[in-house]
Design a protein around this nucleic acid. Structure first.
Lengths: 120, 120
DNA sequence: AAGTTATATAACTAAGACGTTATTTATGCA
DNA sequence: TGCATAAATAACGTCTTAGTTATATAACTT
């Protein structure tokens, strides 16, 4: 699943998330996107390429401009992955040893927690 | 939202996602985690620190071992963020210009697409 | 055709990520 | 005590990322 590599990697950068936030309001060109972020146009173009490779945005051709907008495939993919994690998490919390572990890790009940014998 | 930086960054690495997949089956120690991945123990320890900083896993103390398990906060946080993107995406797709854009970007209908006279 | 505008690409630099081996710290055990 | 084991940390090399400036490409404008 290397699309996940690209997708999560793309989302890990605050500038790229800001770009997505801007695109959430509607499509925008490179220069429009570059304006609010004090950063050069080439830098934004690179970020856009990363986002597009990740499947998070799409291009459109309009003369010399290339307005970008949000795309869905990556989001669906990510959602699906996170779902498996959520499920596993829920399942683990239902297990007894997880409950015991939770008690064990509470510093109030056992100052210096152990479990083999009980000393130090 | 720099927790998102950490969370998405953590999920961008395939080794770390594999670690999470293993932890989805239940808690495991560093050495147990290191075994399947042919990688040294220090490397795994670093990955675990990244995952923990991101809020994706937790530790437990058991003598000299530190079994890890999945944690929820980061997932909730991520879910919430993705939700805003999903919403924006849906909203954008409801707009007329987005629909026109979709047609415009279809290479079959217009070989060298323009639009100065059409929408915008 | 010539100039302008929108974007992409190239070449470079600085910083960060990810792996290694060697060593340290902390606990358990004889 | 002293040795063994689990995990963390240090120091280091290498590859990747994110930014810069300079330049190239493509399309619109006159």
């Amino acid at each position: 699943m290397e699309l996940l590599d690209a997708s999560f990697g793309a989302l890990a950068d605050p500038t790229r998330r800001a770009i997505l936030a801007r695109l959430a309001l509607g499509e925008a060109t490179v220069l429009e996107l570059a304006k609010p972020f004090q950063m050069t146009q080439p830098a934004i173009s690179r970020h856009l390429k990363v986002l597009e490779t990740a499947g998070l945005i799409e291009q459109r051709v309009d003369g010399t401009r290339r307005p970008r907008r949000l795309a869905k495939p990556a989001l669906d993919n990510i959602d699906q992955y996170l779902d498996t994690l959520r499920r596993a998490l829920a399942a683990n919390y239902d297990r007894l040893d997880q409950v015991l572990a939770a008690m064990d890790r509470n510093p109030d009940s056992t100052p210096n927690q152990r479990k083999t014998g009980g000393s130090k």
